[in-house]
Design a protein around this nucleic acid. Structure first.
Lengths: 143, 143
DNA sequence: ATATCATTTTACGTAAGCGTAAGGTATAGA
DNA sequence: TCTATACCTTACGCTTACGTAAAATGATAT
């Protein structure tokens, strides 16, 4: 059961991006250079697909720039790198540093999310009220 | 008690934008050409301040482009225009059209907000879990 | 009155995030 | 094998949303 690799065509269909975007993210180092066919066509594995989805969420829902996203990804990658390497006491200091950096990044993200959710809730209330009034008027109610 | 007019300096301090942004929004027709001093310096009234805050919210928290924001504002302005004009039965058809257009815009916005809030909630959970695990590791817990 | 700082218009510049065209190669289906 | 797409790299182009510089004028404090 070899992991399913996806062609560019499949990826763009699933994620709603263009090939150019995939190339660009690869150029920027946001995703690793992926596997290729004998002829040089790209094949995306599941891990990269998840990274892409992760990037697109950070971009779309948190409004992060690709630069900010790289900062996040770097912290995540560093943590992962240390997770899979040999766990010696020598690594330990480095590991705590990575964990701390990662935690700080995630805390920033959580703060951003909380702030956004709060603002969105306020806006929702405001717009819902305005919609209600407009619909009352449409229904012919005296207001 | 004449309404307080604000200078550019005050506006940029309050809203956290630059003078260029104010000029640009005026150029784009997002805000009306405001009052001037005898010498031509701009003075912003409260109504425009609120419009600006409105624009910045749509931009920052919904990620709307200035073009999309204009669509929203146009619907709002059209509604307001009809609200303050003479309410004849001749206006009535036009008025219902404006109300419908406005309602549709607001419904779109509400859908956007609900979608965003849902996605943010999901992301929050994911990141909170990851933060928890990182902090457990930092605390020396076996995981 | 004068120095200082804020603001004006005009207009070219810029960064991010891709779009797009060109010219050539791969892959898949009949 | 042939044909129709899909994909490759390279590289210049483009849009949005302002930034920034210049040269002149207005506002304000002393």
């Amino acid at each position: 059961m070899a992991a399913q690799r996806k062609t560019v065509e499949e990826v763009v269909k699933i994620l709603g991006v263009t090939p150019r975007t995939l190339h660009y993210y690869e150029e920027m180092g946001l995703i690793p250079a992926c596997e290729r066919t004998a002829g040089g066509h790209r094949l995306y594995d599941e891990e990269t697909m998840e990274k892409l989805a992760h990037i697109l969420r950070l971009k779309e829902y948190l409004g992060y720039s690709l630069h900010e996203i790289r900062t996040v990804i770097d912290a995540e990658d560093e943590l992962e790198r240390l997770r899979v390497t040999y766990h010696s006491s020598v690594d330990d200091k480095e590991r705590r540093l990575a964990l701390t950096a990662f935690s700080q990044e995630v805390e920033k993200i959580l703060a951003t999310i909380d702030d956004k959710m709060e603002r969105l809730a306020t806006m929702r209330t405001t717009f819902a009220e305005r919609l209600g009034r407009a619909q009352d008027l449409l229904a012919g109610k005296k207001v």
